[in-house]
Amino acid sequence: MSGAELSPWIALPAAALLIAGGLLSLVGALGLLRFNHFFARIHAPTMGNTLGAGCVLIASMLTSSAVAGRPVIHELLITVFLLLTSPVTTMLLMRAAVFRSESGRDQPGDTP
């Protein structure tokens, strides 16, 4: 770490949020690996994309505000953008998977 000593009122919540965000993303990616069907796998990364990213971005807002000595809220842009876009990607993928399994182009899953 560089810069001035942060007050514990900033550092402790930020650390807790970072640990929570990291664990959520890791568990989500683990689900991507462990589920045996595509329709189950598509649910797993949503964890990291919503709450995991949200925790990390709030922590980033806290620490960069404390470092700069004024409220820094531009991480809010990434949060809003991610909240709007990651469901769109998921829905498009879901539609594509439904379409491909209906047209018999491939059998999604039942393979580990």
């Binding site: 189950a40 598509i42 649910h43 797993a44 964890m47 919503t50």
Partner: peptide, 28 residues
């Protein structure tokens, strides 16, 4: 509604039929 459902882990919007207004939902 589509964004809310899909952003919640465990449920994904899987389609909507505009003719009879039925939503297809995929649940984990």
């Amino acid at each position: 509604l589509a964004v809310i459902i899909t952003a919640t882990p465990g449920t994904v919007w899987a389609g909507h039929d505009p003719a009879d207004n039925v939503l297809t939902l995929h649940v984990l």
